[in-house]
Design a protein around this nucleic acid. Structure first.
Length: 592
RNA sequence: GAGGGGGUAGCUCAGUUGGAUUAGAGCAGCAGCCUUCUAAGCUGCGGGUCGCGGGUUCGAUUCCCGCCCUCCUCACCA
């Protein structure tokens, strides 16, 4: 018989079918099949308990009637799956070593898993918006998250079959430019885009401008006026703006390169400067926007918070009092562009959680607008993340204080990794020490950020971000290195030497094999809410299972069948670890 | 006030639609394991009334209600 790629799904279907001929089960019976504590079983069906309650029947009796029906219908092959009733009426399904072995022989490489995953998002056109920084600031540790989370989500979605456009929607058309231009003028500063200190100078000026406009409302108005001039096409401000953007983008690119981040398009807010008038016109035409205190705003009375009757007014401001555009204007224009130009089925925005209200209003406004104009509305998702906090427990900001720069963090991670690899593996050539250190350092940062739930805030700490032991990227990469070393020493390529492999036998072989089968479930749960930490958790468990196997069972042994099956386990382990690490944006290394 | 995040082991955090005698992991602590495939590793031990109080249920860290603590957002910043 053929081997099921996803046994849980097949068992679920069989139980539903079996239930149709058993009195006591309704037509919409859900077996509630889920993965189980491995001490009991691989999967357990809990649904009989709920059904028994409805039918006022004895759950265990109902469960055995269901199993009887399953058997008469052909049931499951008991050589592959053991079934038993347990506890108050759970049905346990345990995969036998025969089933595990068959699966491992059948589903052997990335192309098989990719094909399996493609059913999740295959054929969908998806635009993902990240890391979308504001311009004219140096990147600090707070900018780690949009880069790392955005990249992981993008790769995950792409792996699952989406036709993906990565759009870096940089913030290059907002009031921060008004502040910066004002500060430059006030300081009499001459910007030299070629100066190596250009960005530092801009950042210093921005900080000065930010403090000054905060202290003096008249200066804030002056800053807004500079922005209005820029948006109106003023030649001097436009020239200055161009230089600032150029300096800023070059600096960002140096960071992106180190994170292996590539955008398909960079369509910043300024790209939409000539597209906002249509937004104003249409929203007014459909009665979705109106004047309020001189600004053009959208209210959403059906939501108390965004209602015009709310105690604290919170309108969606789509055009400012002075006529200039803002975040909302350009985001609405961007929404339309992504529908018309990219034919997006889905748009994913990766930003800080403090923008939740903005996106809520954007999505509601967009939905009403597209409905009124008879346009198709893409699925809109805000993939938000928590804030990285400074030692003081407050969000890290450029405006105040002096946050750790992202480049400094990368450099420190690389240096620590370099010292470590030189100590652990002194015989490697210097160049390899350097390249391994770079890979491990950045990987450690990424994984540290990705491994906790993205909606959690966390406090910045060198110790946390640069850990190399335990549940860290180096631990996972190390598991890959140990597998590859075995193949290298045996003169085999990964994937070779497994002819005649028997089914897993020892407890550690069986535990590893079961963990390997869990890959697809891990993908599902990571994709569900676009939460990469589910993948991290899985990969750590897989690496741990490999660690136990590695310590308990020698691979290079004399008995050919044992050796073959252990090589097979090694090969599958490294293949899944490598695919999983790459989904997180981490490139494995051969040695470390 | 409204909306959102969080409150689980000394610390940092998992816990998928409520589920099974011991609620998991990493770090930190303690005790072991390198002449054989890389010890960035492996094995074991100790450590938790899952914020508090009710409710629903055969069963609640998970669902409902109330309360407490904490962080974030709330008119022209993005």
């Amino acid at each position: 018989m053929s081997v099921w790629f996803n046994p849980a799904r097949e068992i679920d279907a069989l139980l539903r079918k079996a239930a149709t001929s058993v009195p006591g089960f309704e037509a919409d019976f859900d077996p509630e099949l889920k993965s189980s504590d491995p001490r009991h079983a691989d999967f357990q069906a809990n649904g009989v308990l709920a059904a028994a309650k409805k039918a006022k029947a004895n759950p265990r009796a109902l469960a055995s009637a269901l199993l009887e029906s399953l058997r008469t219908e052909g049931g499951v092959d008991e050589k592959l799956i053991q079934v038993e009733i347990a506890g108050p009426g759970f049905i346990n399904f345990k995969l036998t070593p025969v089933a595990l072995g068959s699966w491992l022989r059948e589903y052997r490489d990335e192309s098989k898993w990719r094909a399996g995953a493609a059913r999740l998002m295959g054929g969908r056109k998806v635009v993902i918006d990240y890391p979308s920084p504001n311009t004219a600031k140096q990147m600090h540790v707070g900018h780690l998250r949009p880069i790392v989370i955005g990249e992981a989500v993008a790769r995950l979605v792409e792996f699952c079959g989406a036709d993906l456009v990565r759009d870096n929607h940089i913030g290059d058309w907002g009031t921060n430019f008004g502040i910066l231009i004002l500060a430059i003028r006030r300081a009499g500063f001459q910007l030299d885009a070629k100066s190596p200190h250009a960005l530092e100078d801009l950042e210093r000026l921005y900080k000065e401008g930010s403090a000054a406009t905060k202290a003096d409302p008249a200066l804030m108005d002056a800053a807004r006026a500079e922005l209005a001039k820029l948006q109106a096409g003023d030649a001097a401000n436009t020239a200055l703006w161009k230089e600032i953007v150029e300096v800023s983008n070059a600096a960002c690119q140096r960071i992106y390169d180190q994170f292996d981040l590539k955008s398909d398009v960079i369509l910043g807010e300024s790209f939409y400067r000539d597209k906002v008038d249509q937004v104003y016109a249409e929203l007014q035409q459909y009665g979705l926007a109106e004047e309020s205190e001189g600004a053009l705003v959208a209210w959403h009375d059906e939501e108390p918070r965004f209602s015009r009757h709310a105690e604290t007014k919170m309108p969606f401001i789509i055009r400012k009092r002075d006529g200039s555009s803002n975040y909302a204007s350009t985001d609405l224009a961007t929404l339309l562009y992504r529908l018309e130009h990219f034919k997006a089925d889905e748009i994913i925005y990766v930003t800080d959680g403090r923008q939740q209200d903005h996106f809520h209003q954007l999505f509601v406004t967009g939905a009403k607008w597209f409905k009124a104009s008879k346009r198709r509305l893409p699925r809109l998702r805000h993939v938000w993340f928590g804030t990285i906090l400074g030692e003081d427990g407050k969000a890290i900001k450029t405006k105040s204080g002096d946050p750790v720069r992202l480049q400094a963090l990368i450099d420190e991670a690389t240096e620590r990794a370099y010292q470590e690899v030189k100590k652990k593996n002194p015989d490697l050539p210097e160049a390899e020490h350097r390249s391994i250190a770079k890979a491990i350092g950045v990987a450690a940062l990424r994984y540290a950020d990705l491994s906790s739930s993205r909606t959690m805030d966390y406090t910045f700490s060198w110790e946390k971000l640069l850990a190399f032991e335990g549940n860290t990227a180096p631990y996972l990469m190390y598991a890959v290195v140990r597998v590859r070393s075995i193949f290298r020493k045996s003169g085999l390529a990964v994937g070779q030497g497994e002819e005649g492999a028997t089914d897993p036998e020892t407890p550690t072989e069986i535990a590893l094999a079961r963990k390997l089968l869990g890959f697809t479930a891990a993908l599902d749960s990571a994709l569900e809410d676009l939460r990469p930490h589910h993948l991290c958790t899985y990969l750590h468990e897989l690496a741990a299972a490999y660690g136990a196997f590695y310590a308990a069972d020698s691979v290079i042994v004399d008995e050919p069948a044992v050796k073959a099956r252990r090589l097979m386990l090694c090969s599958r382990t490294t293949a899944i670890l490598e695919v999983g690490l790459r989904l997180l944006g981490i490139e494995p290394v051969e040695r470390m």
